[in-house]
Nucleic acid binder design. Structure first.
Lengths: 355, 355
DNA sequence: CTGAAAGCGCTTACAG
DNA sequence: CTGAAAGCGCTTACAG
């Protein structure tokens, strides 16, 4: 069934059918009604490709999930709680605003060009990039070519320097620096002085912010930052496992750890348990993100919550503004985090743990 | 950039450019090379809509997630571990085979027609429906209109009766009946006689299978099925919560429960804990699915694992076969489940719990 | 207010 | 082996 057939049955021209479908103002109610009835009766749906080819939007948002670091895992997304929450929030928010979502996973650096390809293929009206790494420059160029792009977790300051070039770009994220400061201050307020860091990938903005906040806060309190207590987990469970195991093997633990995300914190807790190191009695640990798991593990994880749903909702809304040109110019938004105190942190005890 | 420009630069016609792009056999290597170089140089990507309009496939699979039962929750997918795993597996499998994934959530019965709409709009080459309910008849009709559809978790026997009508349909699932029998047999083998059921939605195939397996196995062992121990959780946390709380209020508990999925089992465990009922000392509980959480909660959940990744992989593969007509006719596949013993089930103790 | 016609960017018989 | 041309199903100036 195509518009011409609808037109014939309704006794009008294709043009009029099209005007009805696209809500043109100057169609008399009677004509409109007649056409709509035929459309309804025959369950007619205009061919999206024909519409796009004729100049309409595809009403589709591309979601690009950067999963480069996890390259060794064949099923990258399959059990990643953090990405899951984002993905689902994007689908929720976009669907409820009449947009379709085309999901893509960026497995390797070479895959970055897929963003450009998919845009050039006219499959999407705009894109959301999640887990943006430093190498994302290519993406930013896509936005220069006219494709509205929203980056989640990216350094907005860097872009602001040349703001005028980035008309089609949006950056949304959370106040990770402030959140991480709160986490470290909390540990210090509990009496901890020997505090370790489980660091995320420094090629991500959030990784760098959380790292910097740790260093700054320790310095502010004149606390020593011991190199052996800085563990490079890179937001990856397997890396975290080796790093923590190496620390345990050395025999000397900090009394508390700030972990740059919950995934790593949970991995560390599992490993401590396995080595008969009690959390929080022997070592306190605080995470970041507040993923679903955080409240369900035992002991329940104390952490800093990132407001994922708010971030995604804003991202989708602003992206749609850029797509429909109802707003323009580079914009960035940053949401407050919130500390969620549960069971994995306690006051520094006097007794020192001997392994 | 369009194919005509590429043609001009390469000194050939549009037709030849198209033949190169579509790998026609009778293009001399030299011509092919020349065209490919220009394409490469200018980073040309053919417009997907124009291709589809001219008769090509869209290389896009629609993923439809039926989330009707959760209608009271505004962010339906956002924190649903079970759907997450499926979604991500679909994206993984499809992307790695060169297919794009268009995700849609079916919030209410009225949304079912979106499957048809999206297909008529020519947005997708085929669809996967997850969480199919009995009302899915409409979907099956879509497949009759020529859109390849794969149903996950649906009663294949019902379709087999009129198999020849369903050329474009595929059904994939797990052997839930056998898995549930194994779960109940396990509880019985531990000495339990008073066994309760936390039942899933009976409008789903898996819900019915798991229910039937419970009843059959109890009968087989001449064990009484007490009506007050059959709790209708409908696969929903809030419903489970009320049902379990009502049971606790009555003051008489079974010594073991078979829960039709992990989500409900975990909810029940939380509630038991809150009421100072110990798992597994006071009550044993076994789940179904083996979601990520199952191994992480404390006590870790004993459960029946559904091989999600295998199911999805097969679904995507067979759907692509139907799309590209390399295979045809109704087919169904069912995967074995596997019991995963952890910490929530123990031998029936002699001491009776008094609340 | 509305129809005829051009055009969107491809693919593919057709003819040579 | 390859080009000219028709056609895919829409939208939208254009003209009336």
């Amino acid at each position: 069934m195509k518009s011409e057939e609808i037109a014939k049955i309704a006794g009008v021209s294709r043009s009029t059918v099209s005007r009805v479908i696209n809500n043109y103002p100057n169609v008399p109610d009677e004509t409109k009604k007649k056409v709509l009835e035929v459309i309804e009766k025959y369950n007619y749906q205009p061919n999206t490709c024909a519409r796009v080819l004729a100049g309409k939007k595809s009403d589709t948002i591309g979601l690009f999930i950067v999963s480069i670091a996890d390259a060794e895992n064949p099923n990258r997304l399959y059990k990643n709680d953090y990405f899951n929450q984002f993905t689902n929030a994007v689908v929720d928010c976009a669907n409820s605003r009449g947009y379709y979502v085309l999901i893509n996973i960026i497995y390797c650096e070479n895959d970055y060009r897929r963003v450009n390809e998919i845009f050039l293929q006219k499959r999407i009206d705009g894109g959301i990039v999640l887990g943006t790494e430093k190498e994302a420059a290519a993406l930013i160029n896509v936005s220069k070519k006219g494709c509205p792009i929203a980056l989640i977790d990216y350094d907005a300051e860097e872009i602001k320097k040349n703001e005028s070039e980035y008309e089609n770009l949006i950056v949304v994220g959370s106040k990770d620096y402030e959140g991480a400061v709160e986490a470290v201050e909390y540990l210090i307020s509990l009496g901890h002085k020997e505090i370790g860091l489980l660091s995320g990938r420094l090629s991500t903005f959030s990784g760098r912010q959380r790292y910097k906040a740790f260093v700054d806060t320790m310095k502010k309190h004149n606390l020593e930052i011991r190199e052996e207590f800085i563990l490079q987990g890179d937001f990856i469970k397997s890396k975290t496992n080796s790093a923590v195991q190496a620390l345990i093997n050395k025999g000397k633990l900090p009394s508390a750890i700030f972990s740059s995300n919950d995934d790593m914190a949970i991995e560390a807790i599992e490993l401590f348990k396995y080595n008969n190191i009690r959390v929080p009695e022997d070592i306190s640990i605080i995470g970041f993100d507040n993923i679903t798991l955080a409240s369900l593990i035992k002991p329940a994880l104390t952490t800093i919550e990132t407001p994922i749903y708010s971030i995604v909702e804003k991202t989708v809304e602003e992206l749609i503004h850029n797509i429909s040109k109802t707003r323009k110019g580079f914009r960035s938004y940053s949401y407050n985090t919130k500390m969620v105190i549960r069971e994995t942190c306690t006051k520094k005890l006097n007794s020192l743990l001997t392994l």
